[in-house]
Design a protein around this nucleic acid. Structure first.
Length: 487
RNA sequence: GGUCUCAUGGCCGAGCGGUUAGGCACCGGUCUGCAAAACCGUCUACAGCAGUUCGAAUCUGCUUGAGACCUCCA
């Protein structure tokens, strides 16, 4: 695996190009990913980012890296809404549901955990929350002030962007230049307090109706939106670590400000590789709460999105996502989902067929095929290419199955092992639940036996009655050369 | 308005100067009581216009269209 580790290339948003991945400590990876804000149930778009980083995490683990994967949970914070007003989203949700902030957070945290299980995401090494790290945030703010890159005004603390720009490059990640940023003349509460429009809050003085308030050297208040990630990534991964990830939409201002905070307090960019996952689209537009074009991850499983005629399993949804690169937009359409459903079935069938293949002599290069799996993933986690290569394997498997190709016993077991690893462990497609099948099998044997009797007697009415009845129950009967199968 | 990204066959999507990516649909075939499913085969596209090159989906310029960010967002 060491050899494969050395082949890994990652697209670094910081430089805008792919580069060989060289971890700070050989064989180890520190990775931080911005998690959800728990004021509502994460929608499918949110999930795509987490599923993509789950893929990345899984492949790093497969390569043998010891990965420390930290993904935070935002359960506090003073933030601004689309109208430019300061709103504590969690507080708003809490008031709307007549609950305390912590109840809201916990409620959605439980849902998020459930979704992670359903979509077969590996739990991160640590899932720290903002409210558990108020002290750490305060300490970093103090350090930034001490270094001269922040100032206090009336119980709030702001990052001094102009001062910072004398020593560092603000905009290094997003490519933004401050003098090109439009100086919006919005009437923000904080506008008067800021020395410069591009300054951002590190600490906000409490409002009278705030549901959550913390004590600080500057009085009661709330931490700014960006500082929690700096505090938690530093605490668990150090002042500098290997990979920082998140959604594309966090690039600016969130990640830009994280860099500023780290440079402003410790003098270094927190991460060596910045990775950004692209958005999930519905009808060509980003899925988001504000557009209202979102649906929940569970709705697609029970067919209640209102967008699609039928439901899809979590594996199909995940497979669908794996067929697009993490840096590309992905359009969620029924036709595409149906295509994935069938493609997924073909892949899994191929895997089953492989097990029962007769061993002869190999007529195709199994080693090269397996190498192609690695080559795809080593090229910036190119899952779509991996999937294409897996289908190439399926094609060969079917050819062997039809007697038009051959595979040796040794190659067969190697291919089987490799495919199972890439399908289940790397792509994270959960093995189908065989427990249900095991329990149902005797019943199905009986039913299909009765149907076979009817067919032998050319009693097509009874035969089709059984077939259609099972179809209604979601069980598809397949008549083949060697008997009848079901699924 | 500023910054940036993208435009690929019926659909979804890889592609990073020279190989039919792949999946689904369609069509043809094998199988089948009929179906379905499965399997095999077929389908050779790169928004438009110029340019660079022996050669461009791939590089450059312009045009048109779409999207993201600039404000909470994964």
């Amino acid at each position: 695996m060491k050899a494969q580790q050395d082949q890994l290339v990652i697209y670094n948003s910081l430089k805008g190009e792919k580069e060989p991945f060289v971890p700070m400590v050989e064989g180890k990876v520190g990775m931080y990913v911005c998690g959800p804000t728990l004021y509502s149930e994460p929608h499918m778009g949110n999930m795509r980012t987490f599923i993509n980083f789950d893929l990345i995490y899984r492949y790093l683990l497969h390569l043998g890296f010891r990965v420390k994967y930290v993904r935070n949970v935002t359960d506090a914070g003073h933030i601004t809404n689309s109208a430019g007003q300061e709103v504590d989203s969690i507080g708003v949700a809490a008031k709307a549901e007549q609950l305390q902030s912590l109840e809201i957070v916990y409620k959605y945290a439980v849902k998020f955990q459930e979704l992670q299980r359903i979509y077969n995401m590996l739990p991160p090494s640590i899932e720290p929350t903002a409210t558990q790290h108020i002290q750490e945030q305060i300490e970093i703010i103090e350090q930034i002030i001490a270094n001269g890159y922040a100032y206090e005004v009336n119980g709030s603390v702001y990052f001094d962007t102009r001062r910072y720009m004398q020593d560092y490059n603000y905009g290094i990640l997003s490519g933004r230049k401050v003098d090109e940023l439009e100086n919006e003349t919005r009437t923000l509460n904080a506008q008067d307090e800021k020395r410069f429009f591009a300054d951002f809050a590190l600490w906000k003085k409490a409002n009278p109706d705030d549901m959550q308030v913390w004590r600080s050297p500057w009085g009661n208040g709330n931490p700014g939106w960006h500082i929690e990630c700096t505090a938690m990534s530093t605490k668990y991964l150090g002042k500098q670590f290997d990979i920082h990830g998140g959604g594309m939409d966090l690039k600016f201002p969130h990640h830009e400000d994280e860099i500023a905070q780290s440079c402003g307090s410790f003098g270094c960019n927190p991460a060596r590789y910045w990775m950004h996952a692209n958005m999930l689209n519905v009808n060509g537009q980003k899925m988001s709460k504000s557009f209202g074009n979102y649906f929940l991850p569970k709705q697609i499983l029970d067919g209640t999105t209102g967008l699609f005629e039928k439901s899809y399993t979590a594996n199909v949804v995940r497979f669908f996502m794996m067929q697009a690169h993490y840096r590309s937009n992905l359009d969620f359409t029924q036709e595409a989902l149906n295509a994935s459903e069938k493609g997924y079935a073909r892949l899994i069938e191929g895997l089953k067929t492989l097990e029962n293949l007769p061993a002869t002599t190999s007529t195709f290069d199994v080693a090269a095929l397996i190498a192609s799996f690695y080559k795809a993933m080593n090229d910036d986690f190119n899952a779509p290419i991996l999937v294409a290569n897996l289908f190439e394997a399926v094609k060969q498997i079917n050819l062997v199955n039809d007697g038009n190709a051959g595979i040796s016993a040794a190659d067969k077991s190697e291919l089987k092992a490799a495919m199972e690893v890439f399908v289940h462990e790397v792509l994270g497609l959960a093995p189908e639940n065989i427990a249900t099948e095991t329990r149902l099998a005797p019943v199905m044997d009986l039913v299909l036996d009765l149907r076979q009797q009817a067919r032998t007697n050319k009693d097509w009415t009874t035969s089709d009655q059984i077939r259609d009845g099972l179809a209604k129950a979601g069980i598809i009967v397949k008549d083949g050369k060697e008997g009848t199968a079901w699924s």
